[in-house]
Design a protein around this nucleic acid. Structure first.
Length: 422
DNA sequence: TCTGGGGTCCTAGGACCC
DNA sequence: TCTGGGGTCCTAGGACCC
């Protein structure tokens, strides 16, 4: 007999930033004023990454532009993100959770599922529920006292209901959503608050006169399937509180990796675009080699200054992890489909990954051997001396960063996604 | 100086094969 | 010479999550 806990850090980036600043001697607590963590507007990354509860009261939401957020709240305080700090905060929280349960599934940097096993002599019922709530309260309090930030803990019989419960009133709360509480606590909620019901699905459901989670739960699943195909069945199950996915700490196999970047200036010429593709291929291929995979499909994504996004992909003649080969392919794709308009964003993604073992053993690719050697050597140098230790000559007198996208670090956190489609 | 970056999964439609 | 049908592979696009 077990329950699932879902732990969710309240306003994660903003809370962590606030705690850090207080520790550094700042007297102002960002959580108590309208404040957001936001990207750099000069670099055209100006969106809200996290908001304080007072900022939320102005109608500011995550993902909107800082420009828009300031319109809603002229005195808004904006602070830049500090990802290394957030990773440390996340690690510290998981260390505390480990004192409570042995099985933890990290779902994102600020969310985790815990498998809470009841003592073998305890039968399901009010005693068991009370025991779970008491444990969750202790966990929540310990995190607050030792780390200085607050979390919500949702308790349920499965991951879905635990996650829904953690979304109830915030901050610093423990909520339950046991099966017998579903009609009272979950069914009256608007349908878009159900996990996996986004804006598009909510709009469609409203078109069918379904406004609440309870209405969705009471609809014939055949009908939902007809309207929304496979995801429809999933959300119908969720609406009924059904989810049999397990809490697991086994990492999910990586299906694809990629890096993309909104550029600080619009790109209008082919040579610059090719150089940016190289900077993106460098990081993406480095990550690919780190997980010992080769890619069989490569795709290039472009976003125009008018914010039109399009993507083209192709299958490689043979799997590879060689930076220069991936770059070559990305340039070929780019030349074939770029519509010649100014570009504000470019990306390179690799998918259909396979093991690199055969490839490494292959002696047929002797002419590739020097590429392998080169990549391996560069990877090792960057690991030892930092990612900026080695870069290609073409970047030396260029405004373009030689490596674009996520920087590899030893402690780089990888968070497996929830198994959404069962 | 107004719109990020990392993913997963599903579906439709075309090409191609038998 | 009046155009079935199943299956696979591939690509583009969309939806969702944090």
């Amino acid at each position: 007999m077990f329950y699932v806990f879902h732990v969710d850090v309240n306003s994660a980036y903003l809370s962590w930033e606030a705690v850090y600043r207080l520790q550094q001697g700042d007297s102002l607590d960002l959580r108590t004023i309208p404040a957001v963590v936001g990207g750099s507007e000069a670099d055209r990354h100006g969106i809200v990454l996290a908001k304080s509860i007072p900022a939320k009261k102005y109608g500011i939401h995550t993902g909107e532009t800082l420009y828009g957020a300031r319109q809603k709240c002229p005195g808004l305080v904006v602070v830049p993100p500090r990802y290394e700090l957030y990773i440390k905060c996340s690690e510290a929280m998981v260390a505390i959770m480990n004192q409570y349960v042995p099985l933890i599934q990290r779902y994102s940097i600020d969310e985790a599922f815990l498998h809470y096993q009841l003592p073998p002599d305890m039968m399901p019922g009010q005693g068991a529920e009370a025991a779970a709530v008491a444990a969750a309260r202790r966990l929540k309090t310990q995190i607050r006292q030792e780390l200085g930030f607050t979390v919500n803990v949702g308790i349920g019989p499965n991951k879905l209901l635990a996650k829904m419960a953690s979304e109830f009133q915030k901050p610093d709360q423990v909520h339950t959503l046991f099966r017998h509480e579903v009609p009272e606590k979950m069914w009256p909620l608007p349908v878009q608050e159900l996990f996996f019901v986004g804006r598009a699905t909510a709009r469609k459901l409203r078109g069918y006169n379904i406004f609440s989670i309870g209405q969705l739960a009471a609809t014939d699943p055949k009908l939902i399937h007809c309207w929304l195909k496979k995801p429809g069945l999933l959300i119908w199950q969720y609406a009924n509180g059904l989810d049999d996915s397990r809490v697991t700490d086994e990492p999910m196999p990586v299906k694809s990796i990629g890096n993309s970047n909104t550029l600080s200036f619009d790109v209008t010429d082919r040579a610059t675009a090719h150089q940016i593709l190289l900077a993106l291929c460098e990081t993406t291929a480095m990550r690919l080699r780190k997980i010992r995979r080769c890619a069989q499909v490569i795709s290039v994504t472009l976003r125009s200054s008018e914010l039109i996004t399009y993507r083209h992909q192709c299958r490689l003649t043979s799997p590879t992890d060689v930076t220069s080969l991936l770059w070559q392919e990305s340039c070929r794709l780019f030349d074939n489909f770029w519509r010649k308009e100014p570009l504000r964003h470019m990306g390179v993604h690799l998918s259909d990954l396979c093991s690199n073992e055969y490839y490494q053993l292959s002696l047929f690719h002797q002419h590739l051997e020097k590429h392998h050697q080169l990549d391996r050597t560069i990877d090792a140098l960057r690991l030892r001396f930092g990612t900026r230790a080695v870069f290609r000559g073409c970047f030396s007198h260029s405004p373009i960063q030689p490596l674009m996208g996520g920087v590899l670090q030893d402690q780089e956190a990888e968070y497996p996604m929830m198994v959404s489609y069962l």
